[in-house]
Design a protein around this nucleic acid. Structure first.
Lengths: 162, 162
DNA sequence: CGCTTCTTTCAGAAATTTGTGAAGATGAGG
DNA sequence: CCTCATCTTCACAAATTTCTGAAAGAAGCG
């Protein structure tokens, strides 16, 4: 087997860019999206800063900024190769889409804003009622998502084994 | 009752801006967010272009652009007062958060990109397997969300009556 | 028809965001 | 300690986005 490269870098790059484009369209910033897509399509599920910089043709500063964002969103984690200042950034295959549904903080803030709206506009007014209903929706979804993720874990074991 | 105004414009405005800010943080553009928040907190659930312009202090052009975006996302609908060129933009209290969960098109595109990734990187490779799993997750969520919305409708009737 | 009232489109000014290079930190290893 | 390899921060240039005023389009109504 002369297949030592193992993968066609061009095919990888093509996928990375096209998946990143979807993420961008869904609202993610460009650099985080590209970095994330690159990690997702790496065999290890992890890359160093230098590797990312090379594949994506971006500066160390851009890697740093993008990774910081992804880490804040809990979409990647950072690892340190022991005895080296070099970091590697890893996407835990499960972890990340859990983060996707973990709008936890976002939902909580929306709920807060809506509660304030209900009371400041008046619970008896039409606008107040509309907002109370919206609030109820968020509260409902909040609970449902947790249950859904639990079902996913079961489903996942079924499909791929524990 | 000298309460003819009915609502404190300042309180309304304060809520509108704060709710819009949450939407912006969640990735919506500023103008659409403000317009949407204004509609949501109006008693009628509908406003004319002129009313929106006045409350938000923006030009007709900005209203036009924002509304177009919201309509594309199915978050508001346009109505025509019969016998007038004046439009009013309405948020149907139910409709809009159904639109929120209706990432339908978005999810489909992600699934497409992932499928392409699985085949172009190789279903047998580690990266390919990771993407196959991610794909399975999206397919799962897709189905779950429909079921969840159905439960919401029931729950909603329970809370607020049909 | 043509006037009037609204809405949309468009080009450009202003504000914001993004990515870079360069300088500064941080820590491993001699 | 000093050096080397890395990562991070920062100021700025470039690209992009956002909003506006002005002009053009559309539709009711006399």
């Amino acid at each position: 087997m002369t297949d030592e490269v193992g993968r066609d870098p061009e095919a990888v790059s093509k996928f990375v860019e096209s998946f990143a484009a979807q993420l961008v369209e869904a609202g993610m910033q460009r650099m985080p999206a590209r970095i994330f897509a690159a990690l997702l399509s790496s065999d290890e599920g992890a890359m160093t800063s230098a590797e990312l910089g090379e594949q994506l043709q971006i500066s160390p500063a851009a890697v740093s900024g993008g990774v910081r964002y992804l880490a804040q969103q809990h979409m990647v984690s950072r690892e340190r190769e022991p005895g080296s200042r070099r970091e590697r950034y890893r996407v835990h295959s499960n972890q990340w889409y859990e983060a996707l549904t973990n709008r936890e903080a976002v939902i909580k803030r929306w709920e807060g804003a809506l509660r304030e709206g209900v009371s400041s506009l008046g619970a008896g007014t039409p606008a107040g009622r509309r907002m109370a209903e919206t609030l109820a929706f968020f509260e409902f979804v909040d609970g449902e998502i947790a249950a859904m993720m639990e079902r996913w874990r079961l489903h996942r074991e079924e499909l791929f084994g524990a």
